[in-house]
């Protein structure tokens, strides 16, 4: 089983630790992982801005780079949702697309659905608040949504429960958007920041010490608010917890 590691472009540049932790988590489970060097961006920022021509070019490029791996795994629900949900508009019918679509996974989802580990052999003795990033949550179905009437579940919580000494807090709004939203974070700066503040405060009020999640973009946005307001809480990508980084 050959896994292609898909690291979102901004994570490669800004979050090498979380990216490395992703690799480590997979390798610790004895998996064969390769990072294709010529990967850049999946095209989501362009697609979400309506620039479909540019997005299409990047989608084609992505397909070429990743289509021959058995699985494609990324530490981001959002970028994976781009591939699985939004690529169809650009790549439907292209050779290898069905395989790409069916075998691209977000890291936690990959562990939960495919690898099914029973222990992670790591400890994280902190009170953790889970941020359910929207695309992973509602497009990939990482957890039951508050809007729907289905039995409760959370792949994220299930995988995190394999970590020793971890404690979870209960939020008042379990799956509200943090307001990052890609370009929304600058085109609608005021609302974006307001939403982020509300989200961070929900975790603070629930006495979380760490906000974790599957998307670094949401965490980057909330960390930016935490740093500006000097709040007693921090964000951490879920891969870092699973890799045993304290």
């Amino acid at each position: 089983m050959k896994i292609g590691l898909f690291i979102p472009c901004f994570m490669n540049e800004l979050y090498p630790k979380a990216s490395m932790a992703t690799l480590k988590v997979l390798e610790n489970l004895g998996l064969d992982v390769e990072y294709p060097m010529n990967q850049t961006c999946c095209g989501q920022p362009m697609a979400n801005s309506g620039c479909y021509l540019e997005a299409k070019e990047l989608a084609k490029r992505f397909l070429k780079i990743f289509k021959d791996y058995d699985y494609i795994v990324a530490p981001s629900g959002s970028c994976v949702a781009m591939v699985r949900v939004n690529y169809a508009q650009f790549l439907e019918g292209e050779e290898g697309f069905e395989h790409l679509k069916n075998n691209t996974y977000e890291l936690v989802e990959f562990l939960h659905d495919v690898i099914k580990p029973t222990t992670m052999n790591v400890s994280f003795p902190y009170r953790v608040g889970i941020h359910n990033s929207c695309h992973g949550h509602r497009e990939l179905g990482m957890a039951s949504m508050s809007e729907r009437n289905f039995p409760e579940f959370s792949k994220i919580k299930k995988i995190l429960s394999l970590v020793d000494d971890i404690e979870f807090v209960t939020l008042r709004r379990n799956d509200e958007c943090c307001g990052f939203g890609g370009i929304f974070s600058v085109t609608q700066e005021a609302i974006s920041v307001a939403m982020g503040i509300d989200r961070v405060n929900d975790h603070l009020n629930a006495k979380a010490e760490v906000i974790t999640g599957i998307d670094m973009s949401c965490l980057m946005h909330m960390q930016g608010i935490i740093d500006r307001q000097k709040l007693p809480i921090k964000t951490m990508h879920i891969a870092q917890i699973l890799a045993g980084e304290l």
Binding site: N12, L14, E189, V193, Q223, G224, I225, D227, R228
Partner: peptide, 22 residues
């Protein structure tokens, strides 16, 4: 810097993931 009106920008690391991977 519209981002920076209400948020800090991330702390920039010395090396990218790709560099570390290499």
């Amino acid at each position: 810097n519209i981002w920076g009106r209400g948020r800090e920008v991330p702390k920039f690391p010395k090396k990218s993931f790709k560099e570390l991977y290499k």
